[in-house]
């Protein structure tokens, strides 16, 4: 082979290598599913289901039947998943730096950023359009707003620039039951707003507990989570304040009458448990240890929200059945 041939071949290989980088996808279907953050989607589906059933039980208006209701729920889940994909598209650089997220499809190299963006936008458009067709355009607009709020307001504007990121951004995670309420009734009442408020007030102590024991990860990625910017002691105090404020908000379905006695008693007991865990976190001054109290509060907060919404669901189903 002559020198010219070798040069030509080397050039061809370089060009082909560039083409390979851009053209051959390493993605499997499960990677696209992972882009939708299935863990977050579970919470979205569950809270939206409670919104749907509570709306039917409380208002007596049922614009959706079981099949159209299930389709609406699927749309809300897909919309939540689309937000997750858009979040991963934008945060690929940060995800690479954190242990917790380094194996996500984009930083692990299985899905390209372009693929994630296209997938997220397609799923967002599909979910909003189908929800509009199957229920009403108020619900579809609220879902579109939720996706916009999570992907743009939280991910792009807030997360990298303020330690209050998850306080304001928490609104996106709190909207699914409101979307579901609108889908079922065609309007948004005070009850839907209360469901929103419960998740909204629950989000800061939940995420700050996580941020306490993952603060090194966040610091490495340069994300201004509260423990990174204002320190552990300040964060522990904020967790306690929000936990105390959460209790009356969580009790408000009972005060307003759309949560029954079972809900009132369960929420009172679980809220005391929440505050007790927050006090343990507040007292746990030793950052050298593994932040055991913060981990316990994080786990408890997930159980807390599932239990509250689970009881609301149970009571609403009983009300409809009777």
């Amino acid at each position: 082979m002559s020198t010219a041939d070798i040069e030509a071949r080397t050039e061809l290989q370089a060009l082909a290598a560039t083409a390979v980088e851009h053209r051959i996808s390493q993605a499997e279907p499960k990677d696209f599913f992972a882009l939708m953050k299935p863990g977050v989607m579970r919470l979205v589906v569950f809270t939206a289901l409670v919104g749907l059933v509570s709306a039917a039980a409380t208002s007596g208006t049922m614009l959706l039947g079981p099949v159209t209701g299930a389709i609406a729920l699927l749309c809300i889940a897909i919309g939540g998943g689309a937000s997750g994909a858009l979040n991963m598209w934008y945060e690929a650089d940060l995800d690479k730096l954190m242990k917790r997220t380094a194996n996500r499809p984009i930083p692990a190299g299985r899905v390209s950023r372009g693929e994630a963006l296209a997938f997220g936008l397609f799923m967002a458009a599909l979910s909003v359009m189908v929800l509009g067709l199957v229920s009403n355009w108020l619900a579809a607009s609220l879902l579109a707003f939720t996706i916009f709020f999570y992907a743009v307001v939280y991910t792009i504007w807030l997360k990298r620039f303020t330690q209050q990121n998850i306080v304001i951004g928490g609104a996106a995670g709190a909207l699914p039951p409101v979307v579901a309420w609108a889908a079922m009734t065609g309007s948004v009442g005070i009850e839907a707003f209360v469901l929103f408020l419960i998740i909204f007030m629950w989000t800061p102590p939940h995420f700050w507990a996580l941020a306490l024991f993952a603060s090194q990860d966040y610091a490495r990625a340069g994300i201004p989570m509260m423990p990174v910017v204002s320190g552990d002691a300040y964060t522990r105090k904020q967790i306690l304040i929000y936990s105390v404020l959460l209790a009356p908000v969580a009790m408000s379905p009972w005060f307003l009458g759309f949560g029954g006695l079972v809900y009132g008693v369960t929420t009172a007991a679980l809220s005391l448990g929440f505050i007790a865990n927050a006090i343990y976190v507040y007292r746990d001054k030793n950052t050298e240890n593994t932040n055991r109290a913060a981990k316990r509060l994080f786990a408890y907060s997930i159980l807390y929200l599932f239990a509250l919404f689970g009881v609301l669901l149970f009571e609403a189903v009983i009300k409809i059945a009777l």
């Binding site: 082909a16 390979v20 053209r23 051959i24």
Partner: peptide, 9 residues
Amino acid sequence: EPIIAEDGV
């Protein structure tokens, strides 16, 4: 690793 043939990938 993808195999790079002379006429493409």
